[in-house]
Design a protein around this nucleic acid. Structure first.
Lengths: 195, 195
DNA sequence: CATGGATTTCAATACTAATTGAAGTTAGTG
DNA sequence: CACTAACTTCAATTAGTATTGAAATCCATG
């Protein structure tokens, strides 16, 4: 039960949660997630117990639809979990229609998963594009004048450099989620290529 | 001098450059840079010699203004360099009014710089925000009812976790640009904190 | 199996960021 | 020092995302 002097306390708590939600939202945006995802995760993470959509809506100031969609997305990323209504809660009359959510606290798993799935996918696409470019250049050289020859050689070399870089990145990323440690000196050498 | 059979060759080259420019542009966008920065850098990187703004404009399909602004930004990041008109070029009548640019090829320096300046700045802001939240919560607890007390304790713990995580990230990032190698096991432990 | 609260969907709206291009400025050149 | 090509600036436009909220759907409950 809250005493009358808790009014200021509650306010301070709400403001603190707001600040953290903003911070996490911004961080998430920087990593190309929608800010609402960050806000909602933060609110769940800072709540001692599970919350339902309505409560999240109230605390985050986001719309019904947004909360629903964001929760789906967070579940997909394994960053939020659904929890069953506890027997105690059920006995106390909490409707079983309400779905309750908590934040996943093993952030390493979160980060590893995002890296594995999203960044890896990005780099795969890049590699495919670079290979496509190389294929195009492969036909070049035969039947070409000497100037064109030289330019093509140069181009091929540079695209190959980018490709090598991308592949190193992929290897790195793949290793990361397993070993949990990365030797950046490997990539540094590729990055330093001059030609 | 290009022979007639070079027509298809030139086309292939242009398309290849286009594909790479797209790929790099997309990559850059993912890292929260404007895609045009990536496109322009790629075009310079794939050119055997320095290019002036007009040439970049033609090859990238971007507007005059965009090319000008983007070059400024790329120079700031040390990702592109200005080069003086070569004596040979000057003798051949290349106007000294035209400014020539080349791509920086030491990509490690580029990446390290971006990480150091940009990501570090982001994490600094986050840390400041988390500390602000903690300050707010500091006043809470005295004169509060027992329920409020418990909730506040919980909140403080969780915000502290986030803060610790952020600081670990900062330490990591600081180390990265120097040693070139990161032990992610350190951060993994922080990320795995349960409470 | 009808009811109504809970949830999802999605077209419309609001926001944010990137790009354009014309007007303004700068600086080689004759 | 006037001229003009090269470059820069920035207000307006366009493009791209995120968010809203009302309508549709779902589903435990009586």
């Amino acid at each position: 039960m809250a005493s009358s002097s808790d009014i200021g306390v509650d306010e301070a708590r709400d403001r603190a949660v707001g600040i953290v939600a903003d911070a996490v939202g911004e961080l998430m945006r920087f990593w190309n997630f929608k800010p609402s995802l960050g806000r909602i995760w933060a609110i769940l993470y800072l709540s001692p117990g599970p919350l339902d959509a309505e409560e999240i809506e109230a605390r985050s100031g986001l719309s019904t639809g947004n909360v629903s969609m964001s929760l789906q997305e967070l579940l997909q990323w394994g960053v939020v979990k659904r929890v069953p209504v506890s027997p105690a809660g059920a006995a106390a009359g909490v409707s079983s229609r309400r779905r309750l959510f908590v934040a996943e606290t093993d952030m390493w798993a979160m980060v590893a998963r995002v890296f594995r799935e999203r960044e890896l996918h990005l780099i795969e696409r890049t590699i495919a594009q670079l290979e496509e470019a190389l294929d195009l250049l492969d036909g070049v050289g035969r039947g070409a004048g000497p100037t064109a020859m030289l330019q093509s050689r140069f181009l091929v070399t540079r695209v190959r450099n980018l490709l090598e870089l991308a592949k190193t990145g992929r290897r790195l990323l793949e290793g990361l989620s397993r070993t949990g440690s990365v030797d950046f000196t490997a990539i540094r050498d590729v990055l330093r290529v001059r030609s």
